[in-house]
Write a protein that binds this DNA or RNA. Sequence first.
DNA 1: CCGCTTTGTTTCAAATAGCGGAACCTGGTT
DNA 2: AACCAGGTTCCGCTATTTGAAACAAAGCGG
Lengths: 261, 261
Amino acid sequence: MNAPTGHSDGTVGKALDVLEAVAAAGRPVRFSELLATKRWPKATLYRLLQTLTNQGMLVQDAREGTYRLGLRLVQLAHRAWSSATIAPVAGPFVDRLAATLGRTVHLACLDHGQVLYLDKRSARTPLPMYSDAGKVGPAYCTGVGKAMLAFLPEAALRSALRAQAFDTHTPATITSAEALLDELAQIRDAGLAFDREEHEPGIICIAAPIRAATGEPLGALSVTSSTLRDRLEDLAALGPDLMTATTDISAALHPWAHPDP
Amino acid sequence: MNAPTGHSDGTVGKALDVLEAVAAAGRPVRFSELLATKRWPKATLYRLLQTLTNQGMLVQDAREGTYRLGLRLVQLAHRAWSSATIAPVAGPFVDRLAATLGRTVHLACLDHGQVLYLDKRSARTPLPMYSDAGKVGPAYCTGVGKAMLAFLPEAALRSALRAQAFDTHTPATITSAEALLDELAQIRDAGLAFDREEHEPGIICIAAPIRAATGEPLGALSVTSSTLRDRLEDLAALGPDLMTATTDISAALHPWAHPDP
DNA sequence: CCGCTTTGTTTCAAATAGCGGAACCTGGTT
DNA sequence: AACCAGGTTCCGCTATTTGAAACAAAGCGG
């Protein structure tokens, strides 16, 4: 569907395409299935799968010759998560907020105009709801997404807007760039964003951006609930706690001035 | 240090080596640092970094030209985690166990003789302790590790043993293959493994394997505590609950007989 | 039991993509 | 200005990758 790949550069690009294809399947895939999805030359695909497999990026199930993503990816991602995102710093604050409010808290960042969830703390009632670390979602119809978009600099915002699908998920979904810009202006004023069942019916949330000293959004934090439990006003009442958390995280993130000897 | 890479195959192999090198640094690295770590030709390294960067596997910080792991890895890993591991199935049971026992629960699997943590539920007292999804650890001195080793078939066990470092972490660490084999025999009998402060002083745990119908270990579950809170006997008392969880997970894993229409 | 299809693996000459030494920038330091 | 360190680009050489086609190995239907 959406390929983050600009223009396939060389062998490595192709290999990553294959990896992505396996990922896209979301289940073990047979050689011939992959061959069918894209118009790859047989031998080429075979060789790439071979290479990826003995690199641990893929695992081949000998039983019925299917390929699935390898655990090496999980290892690499852990290091990406802990060394290249705000998640490890934000962690304790997310904990605290979730415990204080007794609701589900999400930590997310923006990647190519999409929301990428970095962490989550469930309420003690772990109501089944999608999103976990590594999961991606739309920006234009989620609390965290809008909170970040609202504080994006002009240029970045424009390219992010172009990446929005504006699909209609619920009757409340914002489905045009114009309407979204209005909403973002309001969010900028309030410093808070709401999801009024715009993504999933019955699911509402309040979100706030985590901003760098320069003002640009580094991520966002949201408190999610369901319409069965809370009304929007109830969530709004949690705003101060939420903003305390986000500013605390910003502060913790700041000390970009400590080289270690 | 330890390269899971067997013999570098082609360009893709080299690219993944570079990726691994960035990961190994655990922080943003400058071009010259990478150049120093391995004896790569300048131009080659440059090109590979370039490729990886515009593939989203790396991100280049324009500010001071450093490279760090890209978020695309986190996305891919999420799909690996949710489509190629037992984690999504085990999740609810891990939740329940952690809630029931009020202690930290870990879900792990074995990868190349090392323990790879797949999930974790903290006790409400989130005592800082390492290990999270994606983190790797030693097998010979952890509860989950030993629980899985104990039920490995002959051949797999031998190769796993060869991968053990047998470093001494604490006075209680098992430091020889012979001693470990004795321990594994006991674990096989009991169906349960203990970590008696073998990895970290003050940290103890009880663990049980999650086994396939064939008997081979698919993963392991552990309940961790500290010597300040529990003695080994206290943990042993939790054994039945733990084993209920592992057998439940095994059962949930079984229905390999439901094709969807 | 035997052709026939489907799926996966290997070969090999041709072409291309990657290689890497060396030259070349660029910005900071002496 | 001369120097230097870190980074980027050039470019001819060759190792790697390429992919059509031949080959193996399962199914399968008659």
